[in-house]
Design a protein around this nucleic acid. Structure first.
Lengths: 110, 110
DNA sequence: AATCGTTATATTTGACAAGACATAACGCTA
DNA sequence: TAGCGTTATGTCTTGTCAAATATAACGATT
């Protein structure tokens, strides 16, 4: 197999973590299910951890990324905002570009 | 300040971790001091953790990266091999390139 | 053989993160 | 107003990893 370079990127806003791979994964699951609890379950993650992640994302973002509604029709739910879609898309684009870039770098070891 | 993408890369050999930022930092300190215990102290790291890191690096590498000598003149010591120098140099080069690449990527968020 | 500074390694302790569990709050619906 | 499914949050336990502590092994030097 030989050498391979791997990477992990994250997006900061004003010096603090906004999005990393784990957060993106959860947010995509929220997008797919419309519910924080269902998203957590689908990722085999505790609800509390998922809630904490969403809370941290919302605190780090200046424009809301997700909106949670408690109570109401079907008990509530959680949805991505258009801005959230945009930020997630930008992250995934850059992440993919970074992987591609690293894959085509020569590894200079004899 | 706005958005900034940060990254962390690591180098795998045959699917297992060989070098990451922390390992490289320790190995450079070993290079500078010629001693595992001095390197650990200079990084404010416990000797045991440093020893474990070196042990893992040596197990992951097929060609030795560091050589430890126990006992003998001055009690022993730890030095990088030429191959170790080469691998560290390659890692740092790719890491720097990756940072530069990410810094010049446009972040597409309104 | 005694000393010295280093590497090697086991055992215990402690700190922090994660998880389990319980329960409250919310607001539509019937 | 009672019920439902969801979000919100506190508390306690557990698991994991790092740190602290202690000690052995090593081999040149004297």
């Amino acid at each position: 197999m030989g050498y391979k370079v791997k990477s992990r990127i994250w997006l900061e806003l004003d010096g603090q973590l906004l999005l990393g791979p784990g957060r993106v994964k959860l947010l995509r699951a929220i997008e797919a299910t419309g519910s924080l609890s269902k998203a957590a379950k689908s990722l085999d993650m505790s609800y509390k951890k998922a809630w904490r992640v969403v809370d941290e994302v919302n605190k780090a973002a200046k424009i809301p990324v997700v909106i949670t509604q408690t109570g109401g029709k079907n008990g509530g739910g959680t949805v991505l905002t258009p801005h959230g879609q945009e930020v997630l898309g930008a992250f995934e684009q850059i992440n993919q570009d970074c992987w591609q870039y690293l894959d085509q770098q020569p590894i200079n070891i004899n």
